[in-house]
Design a protein around this nucleic acid. Structure first.
Length: 194
DNA sequence: CCCTGATTCGC
DNA sequence: GCGAATCAGG
């Protein structure tokens, strides 16, 4: 990808909006955040200042970079870059709300016969969830990233609402426990033909 | 650990 | 000019 006018413009716009380089890179696609930052610098808008009168305040931070160590050059680092997943906007987890808070664990129920109730989710999975929710990071919507579990907990109308936030399972939007409840294995769903 | 931007330098 | 590698924090 090259820096076409449009791409540069979008870059300028987003950078101006305070978007991070990585976000801009994702938006543009085909470039890394490094590329974005590099371009930003070349364009001379590294400092998001711009406003306020001419700020000729050069960053006297010119640190003399004394070569830390003669690094010949590492060959292309093995970067497992699967594929540019077209991830639109994962920012708005529209609360899939499969089973928000239905904790009805049977007290000492040992046998616990398969309840033909509405719950088709493995009790184990549910137990896991209720347990994991204790360790949840309890993130706010803004704190969610692509690798934090986006499972909503509580009532969005209350301030007792948060997102799990634990490390997600590769490729999934939820942590292991929540993936277990969110995505049911087709196994437990045998069709009872009749 | 995740993330941020900044800099260097071979291409 | 470009951007990966690296640095330097938060």
């Amino acid at each position: 990808m090259s820096w076409t006018d449009e791409r540069v413009e979008l870059l300028k716009k987003m950078w101006g909006e305070g978007q991070s380089a990585s976000q801009i890179a994702k938006e543009l696609g085909g470039v890394t955040r490094n590329a974005v930052i590099g371009k930003v610098h070349r364009l001379g808008l590294s400092n998001r200042a711009g406003s306020g009168g001419g700020d000729a305040k050069a960053k006297a931070k010119a640190e003399p970079k004394p070569k830390p160590a003669p690094k010949p050059k590492a060959e292309a680092a093995p970067k497992p870059k699967p594929a540019p997943k077209p991830e639109p906007a994962a920012a708005a987890p529209a609360a899939p709300a499969p089973v928000p808070a239905r904790k009805q664990i049977i007290p000492a129920g040992q046998p616990l016969p398969p309840q033909p109730s509405a719950n088709e989710i493995s009790p184990e999975a549910l137990a896991r969830v209720s347990e994991v929710e204790k360790k949840a990071k309890k993130l706010t919507l803004m704190e969610l990233t692509e690798r934090t579990c986006k499972w909503p907990v509580g009532d969005p109308a209350t301030d007792d609402f948060w997102f799990c936030g634990l490390p997600v399972q590769q490729g999934k939007p939820y942590c292991e426990a929540h993936v277990g409840v969110a995505f049911q294995p087709m196994s437990a769903r045998r069709d009872r033909r009749r």
